[in-house]
Amino acid sequence: MVEALVGAANRARERAGFLSVEAVAALADGGVLILDPFSTLVSPDVALAAGVTLWPGTIVQATEGGRVAVGRGTQLFPGTRVVADGGRISIGAATEIGEEGGFTIKTGHSTGVIEIGSHARLLGGGSLALDNSVGDGAQVLGPIRMQNCRLQAGGSHRDPDPDRRGGVLKGSGVARGLTVPTGMVIQAFGLFSEAPLRPQSFFHPKPQG
């Protein structure tokens, strides 16, 4: 019975262009932590570095010649979907994606590029579409639809000086064509283009020395 169910699942996976259950589990041989190979979908030739964690319910997919690379120590939490439908998606090391509601990252054309740096955080059910650059330490916090934006690199959210951290979008709504410099944040609940750009210390006062 179990073998029949796994066989049926594998045939469906093959038709959809994903690795078999056994092949997903075998990613552990390369140092990838797979918590549930039955609910995790991964395309062949996706590049996952040692130390990547794929939580249950994650999808990492490359179609139409697309490429996906995920760096060492990065965590993809439940409900995260990374899809290079053509184009290229690169994710750096020790980045956290999809906690607090999943996250969708998708290129939709052959020249699309989404670059996410190291020590970044993308949380709370948001999405990246079209071309985007999320620099080292930058953050997207909340159900935000981000299109053609650039968050500049800086320290991670653990940096004691908030004005040295990577750029941040927080709240909910739509962000299009925006650049957020290092140490700055836009908080909005609607259109981010209508919200002010503020230093991150506005929300997180610097520690007194």
Rank of each mutant, 00 (worst) to 15 (best):
I34W: 05
G183N: 07
V82C: 05
A16P: 05
G79H: 01
G73Y: 02
A94S: 13
K206E: 12
G87P: 03
D131F: 00
L5N: 03
K206V: 15
T40S: 06
G102L: 10
R67Q: 02
G135S: 07
E64T: 08
A49Q: 06
L48Y: 07
A84W: 01
D85C: 13
T53C: 14
C149M: 05
Q75T: 14
G183K: 03
A50W: 02
D159R: 03
G92R: 11
T111I: 08
L5M: 10
L35N: 09
G209V: 13
V24P: 06
K170C: 14
K206A: 12
G92E: 06
V70G: 05
L5T: 10
S110C: 09
V83M: 06
F203N: 01
A28L: 07
R145L: 15
V83G: 04
A175W: 05
R72W: 02
R81N: 12
G66F: 07
G167M: 10
S133D: 11
T53Q: 10
A62H: 11
A26M: 08
L122F: 03
V82F: 01
N148L: 10
I144D: 05
G126S: 02
L191Y: 09
R158K: 08
P205M: 06
G7P: 01
W55Q: 14
L48P: 06
Q152F: 10
L122A: 00
S193L: 13
P207N: 01
L130A: 13
L41K: 13
G190N: 04
A23Q: 15
P37R: 07
G101T: 10
H109A: 12
E3D: 15
S110H: 09
S193F: 12
L130E: 15
A138K: 00
R121Q: 15
V6I: 15
A16I: 13
C149Q: 02
T58R: 01
A47L: 14
A175V: 01
T53S: 12
L191E: 15
G171V: 06
V185T: 08
E14H: 11
G155N: 04
G101R: 07
N148V: 04
K170G: 13
K206C: 09
S118F: 07
R11G: 09
E96V: 13
I97M: 10
D29F: 05
S43F: 05
S201L: 00
R88W: 03
E3R: 15
